[in-house]
Amino acid sequence: MAESALKSPESSGETTGHEWDGIRELNNPLPRWWLYTLYATIVWSFAYWVVYPAWPLLTSYTTGLFGYSQREVVLEEVARVREARAARGQAQLASASFEDIRSDPNLLNLALATGKAAFGDNCAGCHGVSATGRTGYPSLQDDEWLWGGTLPEIERTIRFGARTSHPESRAGDMMAFGRDGILKRDEIRSVANYVLSLSGKAYDPKLDLARGGEIFAQNCAACHGDTGRGKQEVGAPDLTDAIWLYGSSPEQVIATITNGRKGVMPAWEGRLDDATIRSLALYVHGLGGGR
């Protein structure tokens, strides 16, 4: 192709001088400022290397003139959030009355958020992430409370635990009536049948209910009450309701009476600070069943 063939009204026909297999490139020059923009970005990248962390070394990296570190920034932010939280009333959570906290939406929200986080860290292991409990570990979602469902009662249970070595601990055992030889096997079957009848559950009509009632009155009523409604002072559960910590099948009830139950709730005083314990109480109370 002759040089003149590249000429047209739109092109001078000048080529860049580059040629590949006879194909030549027309020279349509870019504006020069475009080139300068490229140079500027190169200069910028050098400046960036100097100012900011850039190059990995064997054991560390070039830190740059400003000593900028994203980790430091995060740590600073975390510290700032902690301070802000403290300013928002972390201290008040430890000292203010429950009524005051509940009547202040901001303080209550702070308590609930603190309580939720602390619950996940400390309580969820036994009570479940959603506080639904499982066999032997009570659900905190429902409105049945072994040791009382008011805020001060819940706080006390969290603080000192149940059946711990703490002097203020909740105390009261379900005795092992069978293992310790207090009741005979058929007596246990009778009383278990009676207990099932208390909450309207299906029971075995072949067994004598009256006899079960007598055994209950002699052995169980001291803690569970004459009508079986339980006694929160000793952690004796209500046997007339729909909630069964250790199961409601005849076998499970018989097992409970035979071997006794001694569920332990650890004391959290000393491990969690006051504000956290009280926040936990507010959180648990607010799950839906608080009294």
Partner: peptide, 9 residues
Amino acid sequence: NPLFVTLAD
């Protein structure tokens, strides 16, 4: 979670 809760009554 929980989808429902059974209450005492």
